[in-house]
Amino acid sequence: MFLRGIEGYRQKQQPNTLSALSISINPAYRGLGLSRQMVTAMKEIVIQNGLTYMLAPVLPSFKHKYPLTPMESYIRWQTPEGAPFDPWVRTHWKLVAKIMQVASESMFIKGNVAQWESWTGMRFPESGTYMIPDALTPVQIDVEKDEALYIEPYIWMQHFL
């Protein structure tokens, strides 16, 4: 997204897409509908500026409760009413968005074992796969190489105006 935007700017192309980067709500203000207002405001910007598309990289809010479930499976889960199971995905869906694709390697967090022990408050005495509280996927620890790698998936959603 960034590279295409920079390349398009350098080539003097007229933009046609707005993409969200992140919507983060302070925990004290969650549940008040602010995220929905933020997405709606972005859609209004798209319309006001004559753009055609709006995309959003979405980090499902309940995925951390199911870290062993692949994102490709998780995003197919539904409520009994047929809506997306995940609340954040459902918010986008209610605002007329659809899932485009899973970006299975959206974020890489690499560090040594001591860093990961410091960050998580956990011990990693041997190489293996570890579950980290609130992480979407497990972290891979290699004690012999003194490496730890966490790869986080996101999903891309397209909003229709």
Rank of each mutant, 00 (worst) to 15 (best):
L59Q: 08
S19M: 13
M100Y: 01
E117F: 07
W88F: 09
E147T: 15
T129M: 13
K145G: 03
W156Q: 06
Y9N: 03
Q140I: 03
G50S: 07
K12L: 07
L149I: 15
W119H: 11
E44W: 00
V39W: 05
R4M: 10
R4F: 12
G33T: 06
F124L: 06
L68W: 14
Q115W: 03
M131C: 05
K12W: 00
S35R: 04
T137N: 11
K94S: 04
R30N: 01
T40L: 09
P80N: 10
K63S: 08
Q140T: 05
R30Q: 10
Q140M: 02
E105L: 14
T129H: 09
A114Q: 11
I109V: 14
K12D: 05
Q13N: 08
P67N: 12
E72Q: 12
E81M: 13
D86M: 06
G111F: 03
L149H: 14
P70S: 10
S127Y: 03
I23E: 07
P125L: 02
M107C: 14
P67K: 13
Q158W: 01
T40M: 06
M131K: 10
E117D: 03
K110F: 01
L161E: 05
E152R: 10
S106K: 13
N16G: 04
M131F: 09
P80R: 07
E44S: 08
L149G: 10
G8F: 06
E117M: 08
P138I: 01
T129Y: 08
L149Y: 09
R76S: 12
W93F: 13
R4I: 06
P138H: 07
Q11V: 00
Q13K: 15
I109H: 08
G128S: 09
G33W: 07
A28W: 02
E81P: 03
K43N: 01
Q11K: 15
N112A: 01
I6A: 11
P125R: 05
I155Y: 02
D142S: 08
R4G: 09
G31Y: 10
P125V: 05
P87W: 01
N16S: 12
V89T: 13
V89C: 07
I25K: 10
S35H: 02
E81R: 12
Q14G: 00
P125H: 05
I45Q: 15
I151D: 13
T79G: 02
S61I: 10
G5C: 08
W116K: 02
W156A: 02
G111I: 03
W77Q: 12
F85L: 11
P133S: 12
Y66S: 11
M1T: 12
Q37N: 06
S19C: 15
